[in-house]
Nucleic acid binder design. Structure first.
Length: 201
DNA sequence: AAGTTGCA
DNA sequence: ACCA
């Protein structure tokens, strides 16, 4: 395990997960997605997002014409599946938080998918970090400031990297500018899965 | 409002 | 690649 890299107060653990661990995680996630299939979310302004989304845990983050919020059920009406133990173990290893995450957002990036600069601020307590796990294709991650505007910095995240956004990084605007589609062999059809773990209440 | 585009 |  390599020492964490700091980028604008985000602690990035390169290659935190071995290839075998990544493969086991992907198998767990396939089980989750059978219960809670990926959906293409719509923003409150009616624009389709380019990422496909699902979740595990008590709460899932959702967006539609009504707004951004946490919901206890998938849009189908079914409860979200539990967060896999292997995912919880990563949180316990890096978060420094005594509380367990209540949401594991599952974002799937296909070719050309992006995530615009945004803040994670739909949670009640910002003293808990957000933990982000990268699986599959490389992603160009960008991080800025607590408010829109100003300088930003970017880094390529690779499969198995784990990023912790806590403290000064917790409310920074961040996003994904680009995916190097096909750069990893983890997912046979290509693409990237990002897991974000959060304490919601 | 977690998007999109045009321009430096 | 980056920003308004």
């Amino acid at each position: 395990m390599t020492a964490p890299v700091l980028l604008r107060d985000v602690a990035i653990h390169p290659e935190f997960l071995s290839r075998a661990e990544q493969e086991r995680l992907v198998a767990d996630l396939r089980d989750c997605l059978r219960v809670a299939p990926l959906v293409t979310p719509v923003t409150p302004r009616g624009q389709k997002m380019s990422v496909a989304m699902s979740a595990a845990g008590r709460f899932g983050w959702v967006t539609d014409r009504k707004g951004y919020r946490y919901e206890e059920r998938h849009p189908s009406g079914a409860p979200w599946p539990p967060i896999p133990d292997r995912v919880l173990a990563i949180w316990e290893a890096v978060s420094g938080s005594a509380q367990r995450p209540e949401c594991c957002l599952i974002n799937w990036y296909g070719e050309g998918a992006r995530m615009g600069l945004h803040q994670d601020r739909d949670e009640a307590d910002f003293s808990h970090p957000v933990v982000s796990i990268s699986l599959g294709d490389d992603a160009l991650f960008r991080i800025g400031n607590d408010r829109r505007g100003g300088k930003t910095e970017s880094i390529w995240l690779k499969s198995g990297d784990v990023a912790v956004m806590g403290g000064a990084a917790r409310l920074r605007f961040h996003g994904v500018d680009r995916i190097r589609f096909g750069s990893s062999t983890l997912l046979p059809k290509g693409g990237r899965i990002n897991l974000t773990l959060r304490v919601v209440r």
